[in-house]
Simulated scan of single mutants.
Amino acid sequence: MADQTTQPQVLLVTRYPVKSMGGETLTSVEVGPTGLVGDREWAVYAADGKLASGKHSRRFRRMDPVFELVAAQRAADTVVTLPDGSEVTLGRDGADATVSRHFGQPVTVRQEGEVPHQDAATFSLVGSATLAELGRHEGDGRPLDPRHLRANLVVTTTEPYAEESWIGRVVTIGTVRLRVTEAIERCRMVGVAQVDLAERPGMLKAISDHHDLNAGIYASVLQPGTITVGDSVHVD
């Protein structure tokens, strides 16, 4: 699995300006020391200080209304689109009140501070063959929509889970250098309904049964730079 018959390339770049909300597809993105610039910069905080997510844990609170929202960056602003098509610009007067009405409870939307918004790492990636394999095991046979995995990059691969052979290695994409750190263990979020995505109730079980709950990889940034769709992926 370590070798590809063709050079992997970047197929899709996605940034999620607000944790757990829908994100935005980009043709090119700047990568800083802590990941895609603007990625998971904001998060929804419940009254108890936990982050809105699709699961319960020490840091997270399950709050499924977050999946009905989509966030995008417009110049210096982060804008959230609500289900009725209206928009709210984060950080402005009344923004928290608007988002709270959607959640049906008091929440605040804050930029990252002492509490990290990322999970185990700041950069994530999945191979196209892994998406195809997951779709073969659950659903109608089409590749799994990568938004269910919320990876920053989708790269072309020819074998399922080939990207896991990069763990511990340095990967260069565009002008960015990454160190791949670990496989990503998945949770119920892979199956929840989102904006323009139907529920995939059997997806988590499929990942568990066929690949020990792992799909995709985490990486840390060694050298910031720019990644563009079509860039080749070089594994050292």
Rank of each mutant, 00 (worst) to 15 (best):
L131C: 03
Y161E: 08
P143Q: 09
R177N: 07
Q9A: 10
Q4W: 11
G22W: 07
A219S: 09
K205Q: 14
R15Q: 07
R110K: 13
Q105K: 10
D3K: 15
V233I: 07
T34G: 05
D140W: 02
S28L: 04
G202T: 10
T122L: 03
V31N: 09
P224V: 02
T156F: 06
P201R: 10
T158W: 09
L69M: 14
V176W: 02
T89G: 09
G91D: 05
A2G: 15
A76T: 11
R15D: 03
P17I: 00
V66E: 13
A120M: 05
A198S: 14
V13E: 04
A183V: 05
D93P: 10
P106C: 02
M21I: 12
V190M: 01
V66N: 13
L51R: 14
Q223R: 12
A206L: 03
E30Q: 10
T25P: 00
D231P: 10
F67C: 11
M189Q: 10
G54K: 11
L204P: 05
T34K: 15
Y161N: 07
S128C: 04
E41W: 05
T122Y: 04
R136L: 08
A206E: 03
G54N: 07
C187Y: 08
E199I: 06
A76F: 11
S20N: 09
T14N: 13
R110E: 12
R40P: 08
A2M: 15
G135D: 04
V155S: 13
E182T: 03
Q111M: 11
T130D: 02
G141R: 10
V18P: 07
T228W: 04
R62W: 06
V10P: 15
A132D: 08
L90N: 07
V195F: 12
Y45N: 08
L197G: 12
Q118P: 00
D39E: 12
D231V: 11
H117L: 04
R92N: 07
V109S: 09
S220R: 14
F123Y: 13
W166G: 07
G216D: 03
G35M: 05
V154R: 07
T226A: 02
L11S: 09
V115G: 01
G38W: 10
